[in-house]
């Protein structure tokens, strides 16, 4: 039996074992015997125990149970660094928050998972937030919920609602601005320039040069309209909206788009006072509102 190894020795050994563990895939689970093999001075149970204890103390390894066996998992270096400064509560919550990745996790769920008292949870979360390990975010789908996520991550599209959302609110101005710009672009590409002004021209039938989704996408990219990184799918939904607005239509078998001229929305019904009347349903001869005492008619006739 060798002499009691010094603390420094054990530290060095622990470091070596940890380095070796890091070589394995991150979620690889080590059994005790496997770790024993890694510790120098083979099968020295006592030494292994000390090294393991040291590793657990510095949170370089975390212990888990698989069935009845105890297994270990290596903890990435940077994480181990952070965890060193945490209380056990904080560490536990940090783990769950980390697991939730870019989706974030709701405080209520944290409580259920950790089985901790809410004051303890809150205290731990506060601590973590102060140390800039986690941040609180807002979800588009559940605006009332307190959701936490690792500080360095950006929330996923499901949480933020995609490029159209700013601070979890739909950015109407931004969307409208883009819609207007794209409409202008489409109009410029859909009607040929005419030698005579004021005459409506058309491309000949069978023309296939109308802009496609990709062309619109490239144009938006190159036009410096926005700093937000828009994907082709985002442009598609913008074009869809324009189709629904009746400003453009799909051509060439749905592959391309072109602007269309819209007929005036002038209409016999809406231009008559009755078509805009707020009390139209109440209007009845002999009733409180009728054609004879109608103020809207009077305004309209005087206009």
């Amino acid at each position: 039996m060798a002499a009691q190894p010094s603390q420094a020795n054990i530290d060095a050994m622990a470091k070596a074992v940890y380095e070796q563990c890091l070589q394995a895939p991150s979620d690889y689970l080590f059994s005790v015997s496997e770790l024993q093999d890694l510790v120098p001075g083979k099968n020295n149970l006592e030494l292994t125990q000390k090294v393991l204890n040291e590793l657990l103390r510095t949170r370089s390894l975390s212990a888990l149970t698989r069935g009845s066996q105890t297994v270990f998992r290596s903890v990435p270096k940077d994480f181990a660094e952070k965890v060193k400064n945490m209380t056990p509560d904080e560490e536990l919550l940090y783990g769950y928050i980390q697991e939730s990745a870019r989706e974030g996790i709701w405080t209520k769920q944290l409580k259920i998972k950790s089985n901790m008292h809410s004051t303890a949870v809150n205290k731990a979360l506060k601590g973590l937030e102060r140390k800039k390990f986690i941040k609180s975010i807002k979800s588009v789908n559940h605006p009332a919920r307190n959701i936490y996520m690792l500080y360095e991550l950006t929330p996923s599209i499901e949480v933020t609602g995609g490029p159209w959302f700013t601070d979890s609110e739909l950015d109407k101005e931004f969307v409208n601005e883009l819609l207007t710009a794209i409409t202008k672009f489409m109009v410029s590409k859909s009607f040929p320039k005419l030698p005579a002004r004021g005459v409506i021209g058309s491309f000949p039938p069978g023309y296939t040069g109308y802009p496609t989704l990709n062309q619109v996408y490239l144009w938006v990219k190159s036009s410096n309209l926005t700093e937000v990184d828009l994907a082709e799918a985002d442009i598609r939904s913008l074009l869809d909206v324009l189709v629904y607005d009746g400003k453009i239509e799909r051509v060439v078998g749905g592959m391309a788009y072109r602007a269309v001229r819209r007929p005036d929305s002038i209409n016999g019904f809406t231009e008559s006072p009755c078509g805009r009347c707020p009390v139209f349903t109440l209007c009845k001869e002999g009733g409180p509102v009728s054609a004879s005492n109608c103020v809207y008619f009077e305004d309209w006739l005087n206009a």
Binding site: P192, P195, G201, S202, F203, P204, Y207, G209, V252, A256
Partner: peptide, 19 residues
């Protein structure tokens, strides 16, 4: 009164290049 292809052959062919 209408621009059909014969009047703008250049424009037309250039545009077709995209597609």
């Amino acid at each position: 009164s209408i621009v059909t292809a014969p009047r703008l052959p250049k424009k037309k062919t250039r545009k077709r290049g995209y597609s």
